[in-house]
Every structure is written in structure tokens, then in C-alpha cells.
Design a binder for these strands. Structure first.
Length: 345
DNA sequence: AACTCGGGGGT
DNA sequence: ACCCCAGAGTT
């Protein structure tokens, strides 16, 4: 830790941080409770997800599954259907797994400590720290993207934060900083400041409660931090979807768990390269087609949907006949719902 | 340590 | 286009 971070500086900056938080925090429904079920639910939903995007899902989950037992009793497809559109679908599958463990093995009572929470599916270092500090005031710092950025700037951590040394440095500082604070308030204050003031592209250093002690601001390095490794190129994928529709029926398959959209339903598809896709497009020129380019953070998917209005094929691997009018019951990726919007327009 | 896993919004 | 978001699991 830099020599600058004397105990008195840590204490005064933490005071300023928490004071700012109490005056500027957004009112969000999960801040009105300390029930571990609700805090857990909010933390899983908000992983890699903006508050504005996750909020309606949080409300929908509590409406559909008021208790951890309701969630545990549900079918996985039902859970995925409520999760539909949020992405990272293994989060939903792990959410369901942990609900079953809590409901059955723990009789509905959540573990209390950081170490015991860490054992549950879908709960990693961040989420274990969030639940144990917010619900039970365990003195362990949360380190999410907001906190990484805030600490690397305020304490001038110039190592790459996605390296072992970088994350160790951040954790060491955070553990010192949280000493003697109220963990639930201090942790949420760090995240809130990172989200509202110490933002990636346009930080509001003029109004930041920590601008007197921020080392990056003092050395004019705010926009250089945090440092990360460059990302690798995105994968280009080409998919053909065969949408059969005949006498009110269609044919769906359930995706596996070793690729995107784990456990979601979609029309039978084949993957190919760009030139093969062009040939198939010509071969089915007489049928109605829809082309959609779907952008994921790590894949660019070029999808071609071909509509088949004759009798459904019988020998599709894992295919199941589904009423066209009950498509809404099946969890589907955003790409599938985009197709439906285009087709039914 | 490197890879993979979504979708949406800001810049 | 590129970056990031209340990260975690797998290899």
C-alpha cells in the first residue's frame, strides 16, 4: 500500500465516502431489507448487469417466487422463462440449484458467513462478501467492477487489476479501508460512488467526495486507470435456423450447457461458415427468409432464419413438437424473440 | 492464468 | 465500433 494511505487518511476518506452515500444513494427495493433471500437474489441478478436492467427482473422473481422454497419447487424451465432476456443463463441455473440446497439441506435458512456462502453454486467472492456484509455485518470488502475502478484510482494502483498481483493489491487496500466501518454501509457506498461518480468514461471528479485524497486525480491519471489486459477478438459465427410451422405446430430443441444460451429452447439449427451460408440461402430462395446479425460481447452471430410451411420433419435430434401459440411458455434467447418480432410484424 | 458466458446502454 | 456492467465456473 502507498505510504500516502496512512491510517488517518483511510479513516477520513471512509468518513467522507459514507457521508456522501447517505445523502446521495439511490433508493432501490433491495435496500429496504436485510432478508438474505432478497439480497442473494438481487446480487445474482446484478452480476455483470446494470441496476436499471436488473430491477424489473428482481421484481418479477419476487412476484413469481416469494420465498426460496417457491424457487426450489419450480421447474428449471420456469426459472429460465422468468430470467429470459437477462443473459448468462447459467446464473439462473445456479440460482435454482442453490435454492434447492437452501430449501432442502438447510431447511430454508441461508448460511451466515462468507466462507460458508462461498460453497454454494453461483456464489463467488463478490456475492459471498455482499451477502455476509449486507445481511450480517461481516467485515469483508466487496470487490466488483465499481470498487476496482474506485480503489485503483484513489490509491493509484497501476498494476493490471485483472492480474493476480493487481487483485491482491486491491484486496489488501480494501481490507484496510473497511476496518472499523459499518460493513453494509461502507461496501454499498464504494459501489455507489463507483457507479455514480467514479464512472469509467466521464468521472465527476469536481463533485467527488474523495477528490482531496485521490492520487490518480492528483497525478492526472484518472483516465488511465484502471489498467486491464486487451481483449481478444470476437468470434464470427454463422447459423441457419429452420423454422417449421404447420397446422399450428412447430418444432423446438433445447440447447446444451456447453455453449451460449444454456438450457434455452430454439428452432433446429446448423452452424456453418459464411460461404456455406450463402449457398444455403440460394438453395432455399423460394422460402421466406430473415437475416439477423446478433451481437454478443464475445461473438458476432450471423443468423439466417428459413421458414418451412409444410409438414414437420420427424427425425430431428432432440426435437419436440410445440404448439405455435404456446411458444411464450418456452425460455428463448433474445435472438429468437428478435426473429419472432420480425416475422410477426 | 486464460476462456467462456448475454444483453443493453453509454461514448 | 468499443467499453462496461453489484462475476462465476471451467479448463
Amino acid at each position: 500500500m502507498p505510504e500516502f494511505s496512512s491510517v488517518s487518511i483511510l479513516k477520513s476518506s471512509a468518513n467522507a465516502l459514507e457521508h456522501w452515500y447517505e445523502r446521495n444513494k439511490r433508493n432501490m427495493p433491495w435496500r429496504l431489507t436485510k432478508e438474505p433471500y432478497k439480497i442473494w437474489l438481487s446480487e445474482i441478478i446484478l452480476q455483470q448487469t446494470r441496476v436499471e436492467q436488473g430491477l424489473p427482473y428482481y421484481l418479477a422473481f419476487l412476484e413469481t417466487f416469494p420465498t426460496v422454497h417457491d424457487l426450489a419447487k419450480a421447474e428449471e424451465d420456469t426459472v429460465l422463462r422468468v430470467w429470459q432476456g437477462l443473459g448468462y443463463y447459467n446464473r439462473a441455473r445456479n440460482l435454482h440449484k442453490t435454492a434447492k440446497i437452501i430449501s432442502k439441506e438447510h431447511k430454508g435458512v441461508f448460511p451466515v458467513t462468507y466462507d460458508s456462502l462461498l460453497l454454494l453454486p453461483g456464489i463467488g467472492p463478490y456475492t459471498a462478501a455482499a451477502i455476509s456484509s449486507i445481511c450480517y455485518e461481516e467485515e469483508v470488502p466487496v470487490i466488483d467492477g465499481n470498487v476496482q475502478r474506485l480503489i485503483s484510482r484513489h490509491f493509484l494502483v497501476e498494476e493490471r487489476i485483472d492480474s493476480g498481483a493487481g487483485s491482491k493489491a486491491l484486496r489488501s487496500i480494501a481490507e484496510s479501508w473497511i476496518q472499523g466501518r459499518t460493513p453494509s454501509r461502507f461496501n454499498q457506498a464504494m459501489m455507489e460512488l463507483g457507479a455514480l461518480i467514479c464512472s469509467p468514461k466521464s468521472p465527476s471528479c469536481e463533485t467527488c467526495p474523495l477528490n482531496e485524497t485521490c492520487l490518480a486525480l492528483r497525478e492526472d491519471k484518472v483516465f488511465k486507470l484502471p489498467k486491464k489486459k486487451a481483449k481478444k477478438a470476437v468470434r464470427e459465427r454463422h447459423l441457419i435456423y429452420h423454422v417449421h410451422r404447420f397446422k399450428g405446430k412447430t418444432l423446438l430443441v433445447k440447447r446444451g450447457t456447453d455453449d451460449v444460451w444454456a438450457g434455452l429452447y430454439e428452432w433446429p439449427s446448423e452452424e456453418c461458415n459464411a460461404t456455406a451460408q450463402k449457398k444455403i440461402k440460394k438453395a432455399f430462395a423460394k422460402k421466406q427468409q430473415f437475416e439477423i446479425k446478433h451481437i454478443l460481447s464475445h461473438q458476432h452471430i450471423h443468423a439466417l432464419f428459413i421458414l418451412h410451411l409444410e409438414a414437420l420433419p420427424k427425425k430431428v435430434e432432440g426435437g419436440q413438437e410445440v404448439g405455435w401459440n404456446s411458444l411464450d411458455d418456452y425460455p428463448m434467447s433474445r435472438l429468437m424473440t428478435r426473429f419472432l418480432e420480425l416475422y410477426l410484424l
